[in-house]
Design a protein around this nucleic acid. Sequence first.
DNA 1: ACTAATAACATTTTT
DNA 2: TGTTATTAGT
Length: 788
Amino acid sequence: MEQFLNQLNESQKAAVLYNEGPSLVIAGAGSGKTRVLTYKIACLLKQGFAPSSILALTFTNKAAREMKDRIAQIVGSEMSNRLWMGTFHSIFYRILRMEADKIGFTENFTIYDSSDSKNLLKTIIKELRLDDKTYNPKKVHARISELKNNLVTPQSYEGRGDLHKEDMAKKMPLIKDIYAIYVNRCRKAGAMDFDDLLLYTNILFRDNPGVLAKFQHYFKFILVDEYQDTNFAQHLIVKKLAEKHHRVCVVGDDAQSIYSFRGANIENILRFKENYPEARIFKLEQNYRSTQNIVKAANSLIEKNKEQIKKSVFSENDEGNRVKVLSAYSDLEESSIIANAITDLRKSEKSDYRDFAILYRTNAQSRSLEEALRKRNIPYKIFGGLSFYQRKEIKDVIAYFRLITNPFDEEAFKRIINYPARGIGDTTVNKIAECALSQGVSYWGVISDPLRYNLPVNAGTATKLAGFRQLIEELAAELNEKDAYSMADTVIKKSGIYNDIFQGSSPEELTRKQNVEELLKGIYEFCSIKQEEEGDEFTCNLNSFLQEISLLTDMDTDNKNENKDRVTLMTVHSSKGLEFKTVFIAGMEEELFPSSMSTGTAEGLEEERRLFYVAITRAEQNCFVSYAKSRFRNGSSNFCNPSRFLKDIDSELLDLPEDYKMLYGRVSQQENISPFDTPFSRQTSGYNLKMKQEREREKVTGTPRFKASFPSVREAAKPAVNPNSISSHTPQDYSDIQVNTFVEHEKFGIGKVTALEGIGSNRKATISFKNSGERCILLKYARMKIID
DNA sequence: ACTAATAACATTTTT
DNA sequence: TGTTATTAGT
């Protein structure tokens, strides 16, 4: 214990050791927040708190996993595995499954992802014959999400004239009707959306005092990471659970609250003390990550925000370089300047590619950056964009999984009723939908008994529908016999997906094939990991796999490229929590950063400023900020001005380009324009004039700083895969294995086989590992090799 | 029922 | 520009 405490500074130590009541830890960027959280939990365990009595909530699976690993290193994995540590959503998903009957769900309920939700809303809007321009499904979804996050149910909406007024003002007076129908449809489909996981948890606790009391008693200590990102529903869950013991510790940084558009309420952290008057507040202000100049620059920026908790983040690292501002004529030039800088810095500073990150406000900006990097053979990886589980072919397969575990899942049904094509077209589906709607049954109900519900289809179609029904029923019947992996294999073959996808050889088909293989591999790995964790009696069924992935994002999946030496490209949002030796922040322009969507309100603008703060504080040694004077956006080229945020940073901490000084030197001499109310038009004319002059000079001297044309060469398709590779990851052959054989396991290391039992795919080995003790492993899933 | 063509559209997105 | 969703045509 002592040795760990010695690794902490005084304020960190104080935060770790105070466990008597509620506490708020304000953790500045790079101040060792994770370290405090992990040591605190380790400390609690050492003090005798049972691991299962500690609830630790995070926002990402990644954060939860990392913390778990670090705690395991201190107290061992036997103990850390028993902690209730996970994302809000996954923890309460687990609890809701346990208590599903109390709120009228079955424990197998499906989770609708946001595209499922939007699709359902779209059909409801259509069914109500409303105009989907005014009732834009995306907007409606956002509104319903907001309502749910604030615990407004369709019932409680009734008594809220204020909310109705808001919706009327937005010309959507029927929101409440859509909302009510949506909730009903989800319930009938046995489905919850992401927001429901939090809403129903609150309902569960509200309506079942016994259940609440049970968990209040159960969780003796509650910790919340990234508290600035909690919404009202999350805040209230924590508050209710902590009511009994009042042992709650929340950690966060109000300056890094960047998710208000998803319902995060910065007030939760700003007003923590009002909710917990006896709370103690700890501030972690020493930044261990960045140079002094970077920290100072970030401080001078964030100072311009009004709403924040006072703190003074400082660094004792080297002074470092100033934040260098780069100016470019176009987004194309910006990209090449950055790419060249990476090449140069890598040599001059002996950096690896992995030391660099390029951050941007919008995903669309990645394209030109990509091209520039590719042109110079700089390896890179892009985060964001379409996640693995969002891909069409993956969603199709998952939809089969979902439908066979829950035939009432309407969205899954619609997705696969005619995929692969089986001659059931739009007209038939519409008939089913109409039939289901008018007679109050599910889609599945209709095709189970088309005659009873008078489904108006001809004999041919009826046969096809019966065929589909039979397919799903047959697959469902196998659910209890087979494990997830063989189940998935069966689904893909029986459904016809295999024939549809694994035949073609065009690059797109190849990619789809690869993705499905990747999914199968994922299921396989999931099974083997589960097998190891849960022991030999555990059968890994499809249901548990679905539960796992329904709350998983791509951030969690592609960690295999993590160690490769590549430049990172990502949005500022997804960079939160990460750090890089050198950071480029691209596109620091008005309307882009801050986004034109957020400049309308002071709060919106403050959030953009916090976003910039997050971006700057990712940098350890060098921070570059770039802007272009013209940018290709939404199909056309636009002139842009440098971001107002550049003016928020102390100019002594910036290394500004000449043209910027010329532009703003003049403006600021005239008058001191507040960054908030600078009329945009005032700058435009002068600025464009300047730009023209710059351009002319280029022409005259004939020495452009970079080549003007970039042939847009698209990268060739990914390397081909073995056409038979559907079986390339199938279990290794362990037929040579015997008692006393030595093996090396991927996770557990070297061990000796002490016993063997079972035959075929049920063959298991008991292995005594050098470092991890004795374990019984199903050979089918074992990831190990025999050593001679 | 399927395909091709065109219109509409477009922040950020831990779950 | 690039994607996605609806529509018109076969």
